[in-house]
Computed example of a mutant assay.
Amino acid sequence: MDRVKNFVVVSAHFPENYQYFAQRLKGVGMNVLGIGDGVYDELPQELKQSLTEYYRVDSMDDYQQMYRAVAYFAFKYGKIDRIESHNEHWLETDARLRTDFNVRGFKNEDMNQIKRKSSMKAVFNAVGVPAARGRVFKDVEDAKRLVKELGYPVVIKPDSGVGANDTWKVNNVDDLEMFWKQRQENVSYIMEEFIAGTIHSYDGLTDQNGHIVFSSSYIYNQGVLDAVSANSSFFYYIRRDIPEELEEMGRKIVKGFALKERFFHIEFFLREDGSYMALEINFRPPGGAGVEMFNYANDIDIYQEYANIVQHNQFTADVTRPYYCGYISRKSGRDFKHDNEAVRAHCGDQLMKLIEVPEAFVPVLGRNGYVVRAKEKAELLDMLAYIDA
């Protein structure tokens, strides 16, 4: 009789929709072992029912507590087969635990390549995908030399970082000097040429052999940095078709990083001349409502398909991309013409979900979010415009 596999879910309670990974993993016969800092009695009932056991730590940032949790699971249940959070914030913790417990997946030695933007850029270049010019600089004089090569404006951000945190658009030497005075001294920064364009993504999931079994693509109305600084509505949507050039570049990048049994989210600039340029890759599903939007756009259950990949290395859904699916935020401090009841009446059964955004994501995604879908792009954009009015 085959041994029951043990899957450790890091941050089992957050984000809330990720509990469906735990549910589907249990459904395919795995022991699902949760670690988190949330109180067990406050976990959603569905999550409790999905977990074989839950280990609460006081702080998930304390590695010794995380190590003891996995050690306890290994002692009680045997070999640990998977450790995963699907969360950028815990990427290094996941890798460290996998290294210490000899679990398949990214390990400590992989972190430099998958966390540092300079290393990502090296892979993009190696597989023949264009990326913004730039490099890590060591001091203000080096920065001034580099900006002469690139020309203003430039973008400066931590070489290892998430989203728009500590990202600067530098338009002149005064901006550069202000950045240098306010920078974090223990952080390594990369400077890149500023690229004008809209952000398009290539997203998907690979099986245990590294084959892409699911793919999708988002178009964003603005970047995360703009959404935070402008406090304006932020929307994005899944397209029904993926341009051939974008798909080809995305597949090259996935192969270049040798991704196996993993979600990925690759961002590109679509430039004014119609060409694509790689921005960065995230080794996780898209944030916010992104995972659920995969389901709404395709009438599939991507949580189930992930569990099928882990347990059986099979992807069984028929992906035909029948819908465009969009998300739009409403930021605080602005009056909108249509309340939620009016939105429900206007969108009808094409309003798939109304979301109260977790506090951590409010600066980017807004206080309230709306997920809608339609078979025609014009119809989808009409609903997004109605919500934003």
Rank of each mutant, 00 (worst) to 15 (best):
residue 8 V to Q: 10
residue 113 Q to K: 08
residue 147 V to A: 06
residue 135 R to S: 11
residue 260 K to L: 03
residue 364 V to Y: 06
residue 374 A to Y: 12
residue 104 R to K: 09
residue 344 R to T: 07
residue 170 V to T: 03
residue 104 R to P: 15
residue 316 T to R: 13
residue 93 T to H: 12
residue 285 P to K: 03
residue 282 N to E: 06
residue 50 S to V: 01
residue 58 D to F: 08
residue 294 F to N: 01
residue 262 R to G: 05
residue 58 D to A: 10
residue 346 H to R: 13
residue 81 D to P: 10
residue 38 G to N: 12
residue 371 V to Y: 05
residue 378 A to M: 11
residue 310 V to D: 00
residue 141 E to N: 15
residue 312 H to Q: 10
residue 110 D to Q: 02
residue 50 S to W: 00
residue 355 I to E: 12
residue 23 Q to W: 00
residue 132 A to R: 04
residue 72 Y to C: 04
residue 186 N to L: 05
residue 219 I to F: 11
residue 349 D to P: 07
residue 128 G to W: 05
residue 162 V to T: 12
residue 94 D to F: 03
residue 206 T to E: 10
residue 375 K to W: 00
residue 295 N to Y: 04
residue 259 L to C: 12
residue 36 G to L: 09
residue 91 L to F: 12
residue 257 F to I: 06
residue 107 K to R: 12
residue 292 E to K: 11
residue 291 V to K: 01
residue 230 A to E: 14
residue 120 M to S: 02
residue 124 F to R: 01
residue 245 E to S: 10
residue 379 E to K: 13
residue 51 L to Q: 06
residue 169 K to A: 10
residue 161 G to F: 05
residue 380 L to P: 07
residue 375 K to V: 13
residue 254 V to F: 13
residue 40 Y to T: 04
residue 102 N to R: 05
residue 64 Q to D: 15
residue 59 S to Y: 13
residue 245 E to Q: 13
residue 14 F to L: 10
residue 178 M to K: 14
residue 89 H to K: 14
residue 166 D to P: 08
residue 10 V to H: 04
residue 213 V to D: 08
residue 341 E to K: 14
residue 127 V to A: 07
residue 239 R to Q: 12
residue 144 K to C: 00
residue 304 Q to M: 11
residue 142 D to T: 11
residue 204 G to Q: 08
residue 360 A to V: 06
residue 34 G to F: 06
residue 272 E to Q: 14
residue 23 Q to I: 06
residue 117 K to D: 04
residue 307 A to I: 02
residue 38 G to A: 13
residue 345 A to H: 11
residue 170 V to A: 07
residue 135 R to T: 07
residue 189 Y to G: 12
residue 383 M to I: 00
residue 160 S to M: 14
residue 338 H to Q: 03
residue 171 N to A: 10
residue 94 D to W: 02
residue 358 P to T: 03
residue 203 D to Y: 06
residue 105 G to D: 03
residue 31 N to C: 05
residue 363 P to A: 05
residue 298 N to Y: 04
residue 362 V to L: 01
residue 169 K to R: 15
residue 278 A to D: 03
residue 350 Q to M: 14
residue 248 E to S: 14
residue 222 Q to V: 03
residue 26 K to H: 02
residue 260 K to G: 02
residue 354 L to P: 00
residue 231 N to T: 08
residue 137 F to D: 06
residue 346 H to W: 08
residue 243 P to E: 15
residue 181 K to I: 09
residue 14 F to S: 13
residue 189 Y to H: 12
residue 236 Y to V: 02
residue 358 P to R: 02
residue 149 E to C: 01
residue 68 R to D: 14
residue 37 D to I: 02
residue 234 F to V: 07
residue 235 F to Q: 14
residue 274 G to Q: 03
residue 196 A to M: 09
residue 265 H to A: 02
residue 74 A to L: 10
residue 276 Y to P: 11
residue 277 M to K: 09
residue 176 L to H: 06
residue 12 A to N: 05
residue 1 M to Q: 09
